[in-house]
Simulated assay, not measured.
Amino acid sequence: MTDGIRAKRGFIIDMDGVIYHGNRLLPGVPEFLQWLRASGKQFLFLTNSSERSPRELQQKLARLGLEVGAEHFYTSALATAAFLASQKPGGSVFAIGEAALLNALYDAGFTMNEVNPDYVVVGESNNYTYDRITRAVRLVLAGAKLIGTNPDLTGPTEAGLVPATGALLAPIELATGCKAYYVGKPNPLIMRHALKKLGCTR
């Protein structure tokens, strides 16, 4: 590790493919985490995935042998909810995603609306159906703004690659002619949110 890295006050750390791959912890991670703590560094695990909450990510790392508080995790679902709350407080959304995304939106003050929402929000989902796509397309054509939690086309699992948010959003973008606004990496927005949560500057 270089002196420049050792001198950093805080670290934002990716997860998939960096900390673990599927359900397998990658080499060197426990030692790195031990160094962060022993050195008094601030750290935050940042993931583009919107399907798990910080609590669920905490539990996943615990199963892999790492004890990390839920406050050390930040997700694209949380960043998306925070961004939308800054744009239209108390607005409404039609969301395609898992419970972590829905709960983040609820916690940010949004209500679910399948008739005339302000936003159509899409994240990773195991409940992605033709009916949901059709409804999303019609709502966007009626004026709802299209938002993606991240632009990733695929995500890694132990069984192989799976479609991610960018791939799930593609049919909606193509059918409507509207390009989604993506909150997650590489958008600097999510990094600014993470830095603020970490209490650090670049």
Rank of each mutant, 00 (worst) to 15 (best):
Y20C: 03
F32S: 14
T149H: 13
K185Q: 06
A167Q: 10
A136H: 04
P30W: 05
G4R: 05
Y106F: 11
V115G: 00
G160M: 06
I12W: 04
S92G: 02
G91L: 08
T149E: 01
V29M: 09
T75C: 03
K185Y: 06
P30S: 05
Q58F: 10
G143N: 06
G91D: 07
Q42W: 12
L36T: 03
L84H: 12
I190A: 07
L36H: 13
K8F: 06
V183M: 13
H21A: 01
A79R: 03
F83S: 12
K196V: 08
L78P: 04
A144W: 01
C178M: 07
P54S: 14
A79T: 11
L139V: 11
P156G: 05
Q59H: 13
L141S: 07
G143Q: 11
H21E: 09
D16H: 01
V121F: 09
P188L: 09
L168G: 05
L105S: 05
E71D: 15
L84W: 13
A108H: 04
Q34Y: 11
V120A: 11
A170I: 08
A164P: 00
M191P: 02
N127A: 13
L57C: 13
P171C: 14
A164Q: 06
G10R: 04
F94V: 07
A142N: 13
G184W: 03
G148N: 07
H72G: 05
A167W: 08
S50D: 10
N127C: 07
L168Y: 03
A170T: 13
Y130W: 14
A79N: 09
G184M: 11
T75R: 04
D3C: 00
Q59L: 15
M15R: 00
L101F: 05
I96Y: 04
A95V: 15
V93L: 06
L46M: 00
N48C: 04
G109R: 11
L174G: 00
V183S: 08
A38W: 06
D118I: 12
S50I: 12
R55E: 15
G155M: 12
L153K: 14
G143T: 13
G143R: 03
P186F: 09
F45W: 02
G22H: 03
L61Y: 04
T154N: 11
F32E: 14
R24P: 02
A95S: 15
G123Q: 04
P54F: 13
T80H: 10
V183L: 07
T2C: 00
G109N: 12
P27F: 10
P151V: 06
G4H: 03
I12A: 01
L101V: 12
E158L: 07
A159M: 10
T134H: 09
E173F: 11
V18D: 04
L102I: 10
V162M: 10
L57Q: 14
V120N: 10
A85D: 13
A144G: 07
F32T: 15
K8P: 01
T134R: 09
I133V: 15
G10Q: 02
E124I: 01
I133T: 05
P89M: 10
G97H: 00
R52K: 15
P54R: 14
G28K: 14
Y106P: 02
Y119F: 15
A167N: 04
L105K: 02
I5E: 11
G22K: 07
